[in-house]
Design a protein around this nucleic acid. Structure first.
Length: 1012
RNA sequence: GCCUUGGUGGCGGAAUUGGUAGACGCGCUGGAUUCAAAAUCCAGUUCUUUCGGGAGUGUGGGUUCGAUUCCCACCCAAGGUACCA
């Protein structure tokens, strides 16, 4: 018999075991082992200056529970952590303060590490990576070079070395080669290739490389000298400063992700990722089948060369219904084809469109706008002239930036045609299109369409494509919405490109000279001439002979060349980090063949769904590229992925009553009076408690106001006196409530000032906001109750909760359990610290359960409790349903406490069960149970079903589906016997009151339902 | 707008395949203990009621002996929408 008389001192216990794990490297993973491997990964964080809030660890705790569980199950577990440490906030901070982002980042990481450490994660810290570390980004640069030196061969359907492409060009030109390349790539023979200058050859190769330079449209803010993200633009102006933003073309690096569009789509079938996430990738890639059709522009000037407009349509079968065309206002042809008469109007429209964001244009379907260019295209079959319009509902970046508008078959085209009185020819048989377009493919029968008459959608599509091909006006085509990814950023704090420019052409720095480290700059802003921040570096030129970075003064374009001024985007560093963890200190290669051969891929990846189409798509693209080049064995890097939901904050509000003062005469200067009032009234705030606020808002009569006024008599009297002493001549002054709707304003209060019952600590509040030092608080039942609302956690809403204070007060084990207990991992849920006392008292109760440990045989009840817990917890972990297992632990401890269980045979397995969730207390109890080694690798308890066998069941007996009473019957009783027993029961007769039931439904082991 | 997810007591949530709605916890109410408080323990807690019962899982329909669960329509909220990460 062993007695533990200590209290649950979580501070001591948690510090002790965190130290033990660090000292013994308990969680260090080996790159070879007899055990099966398991790679559990959490998305690494961006180390922001605000530190971790309680939302961050949610996914980490889940991954940690699973990792620890797998260790108990006998796996060699890799569970690493690192930092995605390049990013905009550090740069912004640098711009404001001059502090080097590397220093800020280092400090932030230090703080993150402290916060992570105190939560007791089983990370193998020896494998930490930081994307901003030159030893790490050396390999990001290396991958960039590999992409530059590759092209996509459609025949083999994979990336291949650019050298092979050059060999093909030398042999046969580019006519036979099937490669993914730019649209405007010219066609040449082997002889022509040989005759090209070196520069021309390089220019052509750029059209094939998997990373290449191209002109792409960006949101340019001239005032800030920078490119903005869509979400940095509000109503067409920059969020910071409110400067105008325009769409502008810029030469930037792009990644030819479109080459992988089909494989990225197909790969989704092989991986166990959440369906919504797969859906958003599928939609993002946006595969659609249809036809590309070429329309000739009808030229008034016969000397002009023939202009053509290419459109992509998913409904080529409706081509005879095309009554106009719409081009994106940015379309190249617009300035060329616009007639003199329409010029002014078109130019104004193009300019106006340049100010709208793409999202704006897509979201806004209510306002119909467009302008006629004055030009016409020729219908490929009817040869009729088709007017060419421009409209901002057509986006330049999707398809060809031009649509053939078929108003009878497409609602947007229909609305446009109606709005501008363009004819709407009906080409559907038996369909009324006087009110709306008809877009139902399945019930389509084509009419008024020459050779397509009477055909279905499928038949007509097939026939029209064949006909288009025959007359040379188009062909069947698969189109993807996916665009090549822009890879340049005009920022300082990112990976530099290993690129210099000779004769205007990009050249790669040899791999052996990597990493190319970020240069020092004076200022982190764009240069005065609008170049990216690296343009401020004075030491940013490449000496090809010395193979080193030298001063810009030495640039001679012979041996010393300017380096690339852009940096890589945020997603560069995160696109292969999961593989780098396998061999993070390797200086010779991104990872060794042995390391990748052993770990292969990630078994479980947990992170936020907001990365669905960013990181999670780009990293799949890079993985496929790495696979093509033979560097990795799997073309999908994560077998299973779970999205954890967001933890939102529950903001607290106090309600401020607006007061107004009225004056009957006008002796004094109006402005002076108003200023005095506004100052006086704002200096004497009145805050009302929640229920009173609700009464005031919802009431029609003035009774609550009158009551309030009585309560505030003194205050009103005081205010009126102040007014009178200031304006003694004023005849009548009255202070009253401003009763306009919404005349009560909610004001955020810091959530730490509010207790579990939503009661505000008034004294603390006054101290927190000196503005309310002398405020009047109108209470309900002696308390000030705040309003609550769920919002995103953010500093400005005063609803951010840090894990530090919680760890200090309740301990990491309580926090871990509580984060899991909040609700399903995948769902977003609000945080409310108050509830943590529940799991904390559970841990204390559990600790008390181990006060006495005896080597006695467990009884039947003990075993039943233990084994149903084992069963449920194991199922829950496998299903990532961690919230329900916390409830299961509580039930288990409640039952064992009630049973006064002291048996070691029960308490020992229970400690292992809970160890993934609450590892510190589990280790301490394990030691108490007499073990010298860590609990980390103790085998997981085995479930035995025979302890749960029941002999009887309490049947719910319902009448017409409503439960009326319960009846205990043996489980092995047959259907007929159950029916007989139920019918014979006195309560049944009571319910039936002499009626004969129509039907009796008996489901053995479940329920009895009597109908009638 | 489009795509996705969600909607159950005062709150977070549970409910295995269509079979006892509200497990577990917070909060609240009452009690024990205490000089008092904290902590702890016990009991109660969906709403309504004439104490028989009745209603009830966002709203309105439907399928079924039986629907939180399946089907149809709608409403509301959150996330994503290509340079925030």
């Amino acid at each position: 018999m062993k007695v533990n008389s200590m209290n649950y001192d979580f501070r001591k216990i948690e510090a002790k075991w965190q130290e033990y794990w660090a000292k013994h490297e308990t969680f260090k993973a080996s790159n070879n082992s007899d055990k099966p491997k398991f790679y559990a990964l959490s998305m690494f964080p961006y180390p922001s200056g605000a530190g971790l809030h309680v939302g961050h660890p949610l996914g980490y705790i889940a991954t940690d529970i699973y990792s620890r569980y797998k260790r108990h199950k006998g796996f060699n577990v890799l569970h690493p952590m690192g930092y995605d440490s390049f990013g905009l906030p550090a740069e912004q901070y640098a711009i404001q303060t001059g502090q080097h982002p590397a220093i800020t980042t280092e400090n932030n990481i230090k703080r993150y590490r402290e916060q992570l450490d105190q939560l007791g994660f089983s990370f193998d810290w020896s494998r930490e990576v930081r994307t901003s570390n030159p030893q790490y980004y050396k390999w990001t640069q290396w991958i960039f070079i590999q992409l530059f030196n590759s092209w996509y061969n459609k025949k083999s359907d994979k990336a291949e070395d650019i050298v092979d492409l050059v060999a093909l060009f030398e042999k046969e030109g580019n006519v036979i080669v099937e490669a993914v390349c730019d649209e405007d790539t010219p066609i040449f023979t082997a002889d022509e290739w040989a005759s090209f200058s070196e520069k021309t050859k390089q220019e052509i190769l750029l059209k094939y490389r998997l990373t290449y330079l191209a002109d792409t449209e960006v949101n340019w803010c001239p005032a800030l000298g920078t490119v903005l993200a869509n979400d940095e633009i509000v109503n067409g102006v920059s969020e910071r400063g409110g400067h105008p933003v325009i769409r502008k073309k810029m030469t930037q690096w792009s990644m030819r992700i479109t080459a992988y569009a089909q494989r990225l789509l197909d790969g989704l079938d092989k991986i166990d990722w959440p369906q919504p996430l797969k859906d958003s990738q599928t939609n993002w890639i946006g595969r659609s089948e249809g036809a590309s059709v070429t329309f000739n522009v009808i030229s008034s000037d016969s000397e002009k060369s023939q202009d053509t407009i290419e459109v992509f349509t998913t409904r080529p079968d409706t081509i005879f219904g095309a009554s106009f065309m719409t081009l994106a206002p940015e379309h190249d042809l617009v300035p060329k084809i616009t007639t003199e008469a329409q010029k002014a109007e078109v130019e104004a429209y193009v300019e106006a469109t340049a100010k709208r964001s793409e999202r704006d244009r897509m979201a806004d379907i209510k306002t119909i706008s467009g302008v006629f260019t004055g030009a016409y295209a020729e219908h490929p079959f009817t040869k009729e002239p088709v007017p060419i319009w421009i409209g901002d509902y057509v986006l330049a970046s999707y398809g060809t930036g031009a649509v053939m508008a078929v108003p009878c078959g497409d609602q947007r085209d229909y609305d446009f045609a109606k709005h501008y009185n363009i004819p709407i020819p009906n080409i559907f048989e038996g369909v009324d299109i006087s009110e709306e377009a008809f877009a139902d493919k399945a019930n389509t029968v084509i009419a008024n369409s020459d050779f397509l008459n009477g055909l279905s959608y499928k038949e007509a599509t097939k026939k029209v494509i064949a006909e288009l091909e025959r007359i040379g006006h188009g062909q069947g085509k698969v189109n993807y919405r996916l665009r090549d990814a822009v890879f340049s950023r005009q920022r300082y704090w990112g990976e530099p490109f290993p690129v210099y420019y000779a004769d205007g052409m990009p050249q790669m720095i040899d791999e052996e000279h990597l990493p190319l480290e970020l240069p020092e700059v004076e200022k982190y802003l764009p240069t005065e001439t609008g170049e990216p921040p690296l343009g401020n570096a004075t030491h940013w030129a490449w000496d090809r002979l010395k193979a080193e970075v030298v001063s810009n003064d030495l640039i001679d374009h012979v041996n010393v060349f300017p380096l690339e001024l852009n940096t890589m985007p945020g997603w560069a560093g995160s696109s292969q980090y999961f593989n780098r963890y396998m061999d993070p200190r390797n200086d010779e290669a991104i990872f060794s063949k042995e390391a990748i051969g052993y770990w292969q891929d990630v078994d479980l990846y947990i992170g936020g769904s907001e990365h669905a189409t960013g990181h999670l798509l780009y990293s799949r693209f890079w993985q496929k590229f790495m696979f093509d080049k033979g560097y990795v064995p799997k073309d999908e890097y994560a077998q299973k992925l779970i999205n954890q939901g967001m933890i939102t904050g529950s903001s607290a509000f106090v309600f401020r009553l607006l007061l107004e003062a009225r004056q009957a005469d006008s002796i004094y200067d109006k402005k002076e009076v108003e200023d005095f009032y506004s100052k006086l009234l704002s200096g004497n705030p009145v805050l009302v408690s929640k229920r009173i606020r609700n009464q005031l808002v919802h009431t029609q009569d003035s009774l609550p106001f009158d009551n309030l006024k009585i309560r505030l008599k003194d205050l009103f009297f005081k205010l009126e006196n102040e007014v009178k002493s200031k304006f003694p001549e004023a005849e009548l002054v009255s202070i009253d409530f401003d009763r306009r709707i919404g005349g009560i304003v909610p004001i955020h209060a810091d959530v730490s000032l509010v207790n579990a019952s939503d009661e505000l600590d008034i004294e603390a509040f006054k101290e927190w906001q000196p503005e309310y030092k002398d405020a009047e608080f109108i209470l309900e039942e002696g308390k000030y109750i705040v309003g609550r609302e769920i919002e995103k956690m953010s500093k400005s809403k005063y609803n951010v909760v840090n894990p530090d204070a919680i760890c200090e007060e309740y301990g990491a084990d309580s926090l871990r359990l509580y984060e899991m207990f909040l609700g399903p991992l995948e769902q977003s849920k609000p945080w409310n610290t108050a509830g943590i006392t529940g799991v904390h008292s559970f841990l204390k109760k559990m600790w008390r359960l181990y006060e006495t440990i005896e080597d006695v045989e467990p009884n039947k009840d003990n075993l039943k409790t233990l084994h149903k817990t084992i069963k449920k917890v194991e199922e829950d972990i496998e299903n990532f349903s961690f919230n329900t297992s916390v409830a299961t632990f509580m039930i288990c401890v409640n039952e064992l406490t009630a049973q006064k269980c002291t048996s070691k045979a029960i308490l020992e397995p229970l400690a292992i069960l809970i160890s993934p969730y609450a590892p510190h207390i589990a280790e301490e109890l394990w030691e108490l149970l007499g073990h010298a080694e860590s609990i980390a690798e103790a085998p997981f308890p085995k479930f035995e079903a025979n302890y749960l066998v029941e002999s009887s069941k309490e049947y719910p007996i319902s009448f017409n589906g409503k439960l009326r009473f319960k009846l205990e019957l043996p489980l092995d009783m047959g259907k007929d016997a159950i029916e007989a027993a139920v019918m014979a029961h006195e309560k049944t007769q009571e319910q039936l009151q002499g009626r004969t039931p129509k039907k009796v439904i008996v489901v053995p082991g479940k329920i009895v339902n009597i109908v009638g």
